[in-house]
């Protein structure tokens, strides 16, 4: 019981996230209707048996679209985070471990990219490349990876100075093996915590870009886009906007709380 109270936030947020993830994965089986079926005779209907949360301006089932929207948001965020992880971990370790001129140039590039507000930068990326789902992911990754790579580099710099890394060098372990066997296991928990703490922000950015019409393209359901779709009707049918907004709110807040309590649980220092 004591452990439950100590980790109550972690458990509650994890439960919420598991439910969201399960709903997102099984959306096709849970959704009562086809989220893409347009029926203009049924537009902007209130809750009913057939449409539990009513219909949107094109007569599509609101609940089904919410389920599929959550699916899109979560999967996009996971894709962005996985690609970011795969790019930034090797680059960060390489820059941190090699040091010298490579590290200096790495920091210069990071400083340049970090000088722009990141949302504006991804906006500019998508704007130049043209709106599409692939470009959205590309833009998000391009903006994100610098922060992680820099964070990882910092951790590598401090791990590198620990004597067990020096002993490994003296034992004849190759730099690659040192990175895999000593550095990655040491920094992994901090990196994962950081990913979880940031995933909420990524979901917000994806929704934001989709709201502006630059991300996920219609007719695919996405929470940010649903808010945009319901904009003209928000005086007469405010719930059209409330539902996706609330889901974004709950997903993001549970990711933030989960990341923060995971950090406390694993006792990872807050840096960056």
């Amino acid at each position: 019981m004591k452990t439950f109270r100590q980790h109550s936030l972690l458990i509650v947020s994890a439960t919420v996230l598991v439910i969201f993830t399960a709903v997102a994965i099984f959306a096709p089986f849970i959704a009562p209707n086809d989220p893409y079926y347009v029926d203009l005779t049924q537009k902007l209907q209130p809750s009913s048996k057939g449409y539990p949360l009513g219909t949107d301006h094109l007569g599509r089932c609101q609940l089904s679209r919410l389920l599929f929207g959550a699916r899109t948001s979560l999967s996009t965020a996971c894709i962005v985070m996985s690609i970011t992880f795969c790019i930034s971990v090797p680059i960060g370790i390489f820059a941190g471990y090699m040091g010298g001129i490579i590290d200096t140039w790495f920091i210069r590039i990071c400083d340049m990219l970090m000088a722009f507000p990141s949302f504006l930068l991804s906006l500019a990326f998508v704007g130049m490349l043209g709106p599409s789902y692939g470009h959205l992911i590309l833009a998000m990754v391009c903006v994100q990876w610098v922060f992680y790579a820099r964070f990882i580099r910092g951790m590598v710099l401090s791990v590198k100075e620990r004597s067990f890394v020096m002993v490994a060098r003296i034992c004849g372990t190759s730099p690659f093996k040192i990175a895999i066997k000593h550095i990655v296991p040491t920094i992994l928990s901090s990196v994962i915590v950081l990913l979880f703490m940031d995933i909420g922000g990524v979901i917000l950015s994806i929704s934001g870009l989709s709201f502006l019409g630059l991300g996920v393209q219609p007719p695919n359901a996405e929470l940010g886009m649903m808010i945009n779709d319901s904009k003209p009707y928000f005086r007469s049918h405010p719930m059209q906007m409330m539902y996706p907004g609330l889901i974004i709110f709950f997903v993001v807040i549970s990711f933030n709380v989960f990341g923060e309590s995971l950090r406390q649980w694993l006792q990872v220092e807050r840096r960056l």
């Binding site: 620990r162 004597s163 067990f164 020096m166 002993v167 490994a168 003296i170 034992c171 000593h182």
Partner: peptide, 12 residues
């Protein structure tokens, strides 16, 4: 080879 002072820091 080497043996360092800080025995806990010298091992993973």
């Amino acid at each position: 080879q080497v043996v360092f002072q800080d025995c806990y820091g010298a091992v993973n």
